[in-house]
């Protein structure tokens, strides 16, 4: 498996296992988020006199968040593309862009939450808000974790360059980042669009 056509991150048995293990972990993450979605669907109409989704969601803000996250998924893809061309600078730059976009997304999401709280929708208001904030919060916590994690990986990249180990770590982090984008697509569709239209 060490032929020169194999990407660097697959060139040791251990990194192959790390990547496979991470895919298995993503399987668990799919189950985790689908549980959050299932609970949300069960509770979404139980507003207990508090605001419902269509009362508080703002399409424009949500669309901007969506585009930011979609773009960050694209730039992290470009980062891995650079990595496979052994372009350390490109990798670093695209990853930093990804992180900045991630931070922008978080900034917007926090503002969104503050807005909801002002509208009288706190996590303690109703079954709906509990499920809503927990689903969104779990995604947001994942994004936060991803930003810190990738920052630490970039420190390692600067110190060690693109090696079998650093490249596999960054590849795994990029899988994680794309996955968060996938989760967001479902949140956008089944929480926001559905909440505003139904």
């Amino acid at each position: 498996m060490t032929s020169h056509t194999t990407p660097l991150e697959y060139q040791s048995e251990q990194t192959q296992m790390n990547i496979l293990g991470f895919w298995v972990f993503l399987g668990a993450e799919i189950v985790l988020f689908s549980t959050l979605f299932a609970s949300y669907f069960v509770l979404e109409h139980n507003t207990a006199g508090g605001p419902a989704g269509q009362d508080i969601f703002i399409l424009k803000d949500v669309l901007i968040e969506t585009f930011i996250l979609l773009t960050s998924s694209f730039t992290s893809g470009l980062a891995i593309h650079s990595m496979r061309n052994h372009d350390k600078k490109g990798l670093l730059i695209w990853m930093i862009v990804t992180l900045l976009l991630g931070a922008g997304f978080l900034y917007m999401e926090i503002n969104e939450f503050i807005h909801y709280v002002h509208e009288g929708a706190t996590i303690q208001t109703s079954g709906f808000t509990a499920a809503f904030f927990t689903l969104l919060g779990t995604h947001g916590a994942h994004v936060t974790f991803g930003i810190i994690w990738i920052s630490l990986l970039l420190v390692q990249l600067v110190r060690r360059g693109i090696t079998v180990k650093t490249s596999s770590k960054l590849f795994i982090a990029s899988l994680y980042w794309h996955f968060l984008d996938v989760v967001w697509i479902f949140i956008f569709t089944f929480v926001y669009l559905k909440g505003m239209v139904m």
Binding site: L20, W23, L26, T35, A38, F41
Partner: peptide
């Protein structure tokens, strides 16, 4: 990668689980 097929099977399996959990719970 070597495990491409396994990854696809894993993802399909997870999606089936997701559907069971979501539609089953509802």
């Amino acid at each position: 990668g070597k495990e491409g097929i396994i990854n696809v099977v894993n993802m399909v399996n997870s999606i089936i689980l997701a559907l069971i959990i979501v539609f089953g719970s509802i």
